[in-house]
Computed example of a mutant assay.
Amino acid sequence: MSRPRVDVVVLTMNDRPAEEAAAQATLRAQSGVDVRVVVVGNGCTPEVVPPDALTVSLPGNVGIPGGRNAGAHALHEAGDPGEWLYFLDNDASFPRADVLARLVAEAERHPEAAWVQPRLTGPDDAATPRRWVPRLRASNPGRPGKVASMTEGVVLIRRDAFDAVGGWEEQLFLYHEGVDLAWRLYEAGWSGWYAASIRMHHPLTEPARHALYHRLAARNRIWIAHRNLPALLLPLYLSAWTTITLARAVRRGGLSQTLCGMREGWTSRLTQRRRPMSWRTVHRLTAAGRPPII
């Protein structure tokens, strides 16, 4: 019996070579699956590359969704694409050699799930910030179940589902592409599964360390809402999100950039192609614990 094939996409800007080498060592140690890797240089030529891996050198920084799509496309064009795609942050690591095999087994137990999400922790194998738990009730990150969101940098996705919905939305460039992809996968009839007993490690970093965070996160929330939500839900979602976001920005900083992003998102929302989800999808998202008004 043949082993499952997992195609792994790693995106780099050659900005953390030591962390990349350590992460790739844990990737190469994965057992029970056949792994094929592509390292995508987002505006660079990859410098840290596992043996036998494919490489893609993009001439400019096309953003994280665009870079990941380029990697998935390169693996497809190489022939005999795997049934599974795994998107791996270049500083995330596998704490055990059976992580990918266990994720595939979990996906096979849940054939309705387009993606399977491991529990992401810090290097201590325990700390899980709320933003890394792909559901609203994040106080217990060890509870598995159906989910309607994803942590984009450590996720297993069925290749046929990913291709059918067009992959990551490249216009977003950075932030909230996982929400957008999850909504489109739900609209296509799929769901997601959180395999909380399977861990991945990642440095305990803050997204606000990126200068573009506050602006792009605000802009993209408006864009994905305009792209995906029924007209009746748009004011509910955006008013709830605006209230929460402004309160956080006042308390934590980044208010001016958040307001800039909101203005950019609102004035440019019509550049986004609307494909409103059905009310059946709204119901399914709500049943999965993530109603699209929050």
Results as ranks from 00 to 15, higher is better:
A105T: 05
A105L: 07
A107H: 04
A107V: 06
A107S: 14
E108A: 14
E108R: 15
R109K: 14
H110P: 03
A113P: 07
A114C: 05
P118C: 05
R119I: 07
R119E: 01
L120M: 14
T121Y: 00
G122Q: 07
R131D: 09
V133S: 01
V133H: 03
G142E: 07
R143M: 02
R143Q: 11
P144C: 07
G145Y: 12
V147N: 04
A148W: 09
M150G: 11
V155G: 09
V155A: 11
L156I: 05
R158E: 08
A161L: 01
G166Q: 10
W168G: 00
L174S: 06
Y175H: 06
H176Y: 13
E177T: 08
V179F: 14
Y186G: 01
W193P: 07
W193T: 08
A195I: 10
A196C: 09
I198V: 15
M200Y: 01
M200A: 12
M200C: 12
H202V: 06
P203R: 12
E206S: 14
P207S: 02
A208R: 10
L212W: 12
A218M: 12
R219M: 13
R221Y: 02
R221F: 02
R221A: 14
I222T: 13
I224S: 14
I224E: 14
R227V: 01
N228F: 03
